[in-house]
Amino acid sequence: MPKLAANLSMLFTELPFIERFGAAAKAGFKGVEYLFPYAYDAQEIKQELDKHGLTQVLFNLPAGDWDGGERGIGANPERVNEFRAGLEMAISYARVLGCDQINCLAGIQPEKFSEQEAEATLVANLKYAAKALNEEGIRLVAEAINTRDIPGFVLNNTKQGLSILEKVGSSNLKIQYDIYHMQIMEGDIAPTLSEHIESIGHIQLADNPGRHEPGTGELNYKFLFQHIDSIGYDGWIGCEYKPLTTTEEGLTWLKSHGA
Rank of each mutant, 00 (worst) to 15 (best):
F17D: 04
Q226P: 11
G161I: 03
M10I: 09
E249C: 05
E48N: 09
N134C: 13
A90F: 01
G69C: 10
I189P: 00
N60L: 03
E218F: 07
E33A: 14
G169E: 14
Y177G: 03
G22S: 08
L105Q: 11
Y241A: 06
L58P: 11
Q183F: 00
K127T: 00
G169D: 14
D65C: 06
H202I: 09
Y93W: 03
Q56T: 09
V32K: 04
A106R: 04
N7Q: 09
A6D: 10
A5E: 06
G187I: 08
K242T: 13
F113Q: 03
V80H: 09
E88R: 12
L8Q: 09
L97F: 12
G238A: 13
S230L: 07
H257E: 05
L165W: 01
A129I: 03
P243R: 00
L205N: 10
D229M: 10
K131A: 14
A6M: 07
K26R: 14
L140G: 04
L193Y: 12
R84H: 15
H202G: 06
I138E: 05
I18V: 15
T245D: 14
E111V: 05
A90D: 00
E78F: 11
K30G: 14
T246I: 02
L219C: 12
L15N: 12
A42D: 04
S194V: 13
S9H: 10
F12I: 01
F223H: 13
K26Q: 13
G31A: 06
F113Y: 15
E249P: 09
G210N: 04
Y241I: 08
Y38W: 07
A118F: 08
K174H: 13
D100T: 15
